[in-house]
């Protein structure tokens, strides 16, 4: 039972990693935009460097999500043959966590791209 002894806490935290990356991306983009418009560019000014910053955040977030997704993929090992699916085996637990993490990574990536599109189209602080 080597699977039993694997440190379990890491698994659950990995589940929240992808949405955390999305949240960090959203908050950073929002704060950058808000501070830029309030303190530097002023109402009606150009978004300029804030857009570049959001682009950088997006690249970093997508890279982070790719990393989480890759780790989740590795955890999703092939289904063992036999009727034991959805059962009490450590492999089932790993497959579940891997698959759910992967799904969350996909959702987070989509939401990050949605947010990035805003910076692509909006150019001013108006």
């Amino acid at each position: 039972m080597t699977d039993e002894s694997r440190p379990p806490r890491e698994n659950l935290w990995l589940l929240t990693a992808a949405p955390f990356i999305w949240l960090a991306h959203l908050l950073l983009s929002y704060i950058t935009g808000a501070v830029w418009c309030a303190k530097i560019a002023g109402r009606g000014g150009s978004l300029g460097a804030a857009r570049a910053a959001i682009a950088v955040y997006t690249l970093l977030a997508l890279a982070g999500l790719a990393l989480v997704g890759w780790r989740a993929m590795r955890r999703r090992r092939p289904v063992e043959p036999g009727p034991a699916r959805e059962y009490d085996a450590p492999g089932d637990r790993d497959r579940f966590l891997g698959r759910t993490t992967l799904l969350l990574t996909g959702l987070s990536a989509l939401a990050v791209v949605y947010a990035a599109l805003v910076a692509l189209f909006i150019r001013s602080c108006r």
Binding site: L47, A115, V118, I122
Partner: peptide
């Protein structure tokens, strides 16, 4: 609020429908 703020939250509000 600036348009970019509205846009970011509009994006998230649409994403949550998924």
């Amino acid at each position: 609020l600036p348009g970019v703020s509205l846009g970011l939250f509009s994006a998230a509000s649409t994403a949550v429908a998924i």
